[in-house]
Every structure is written in structure tokens, then in C-alpha cells.
Simulated assay, not measured.
Amino acid sequence: MNLLKFIAIGAAVAYGVNYVTKKQSNGRSIFDDMMDKAPDLADNLKKYGEDALSKVSQRVQS
């Protein structure tokens, strides 16, 4: 039974990787689009992290 689970999970992962890296009609893949947006997403995450830290420090001080 465990072997069947591993086969099913492996097939799902392989399909997901194939889907994400498959070229679309514009010649780009979903992975390419995500990599282009990664710096902006990282900047947004840093901003949210700094906001969260400032809110936590304000609560600790009060």
C-alpha cells in the first residue's frame, strides 16, 4: 500500500513539474513568469515582515 502511495505522489509531482515548466502560446512558462516576479515578491515580503516586527515591538513596549 505504501508503494502505491509513493507512485501516486511521484506521478502528481512529475505532472506538476511538467505543467509549470511547459511553454505556453507566448513562448514562456509559468516558472519563467514566477522568476520574473520574484524580486518584487521578495521586496513585498520584506516590507510585510518589517511591519509585523514593528507592530510586535509596539505591543511589547505598551
Rank of each mutant, 00 (worst) to 15 (best):
N2A: 15
L3E: 14
L3H: 12
L3A: 15
K5R: 15
F6E: 10
F6C: 03
I7S: 05
I9S: 09
A11F: 10
A11H: 05
A12D: 10
A14C: 00
A14W: 06
N18H: 15
V20K: 00
V20F: 11
V20C: 02
T21R: 10
K23P: 03
Q24K: 15
Q24L: 13
Q24C: 10
S25L: 10
S25P: 03
N26T: 08
N26Y: 02
G27L: 01
G27H: 01
R28K: 15
R28H: 12
R28E: 14
S29Y: 04
I30C: 01
F31I: 02
F31W: 06
F31V: 05
D32M: 07
D32C: 08
D33Q: 14
M34C: 04
M34W: 12
M35R: 08
M35C: 08
M35H: 05
M35F: 08
M35Q: 12
D36M: 07
P39W: 03
P39C: 02
D40Q: 13
D40N: 11
L41I: 09
D43G: 09
D43K: 04
N44E: 05
N44S: 10
L45W: 00
L45E: 01
K46Q: 11
K46F: 01
K46N: 12
K47Y: 01
Y48I: 04
Y48S: 07
G49C: 03
G49M: 01
G49L: 01
G49N: 08
E50I: 08
E50W: 12
A52R: 04
L53W: 03
L53P: 00
L53C: 00
L53R: 13
K55H: 07
K55L: 03
V56K: 12
S57A: 11
S57I: 08
R59T: 03
R59Y: 07
V60L: 09
Q61P: 02
Q61M: 15
Q61Y: 13
Q61C: 09
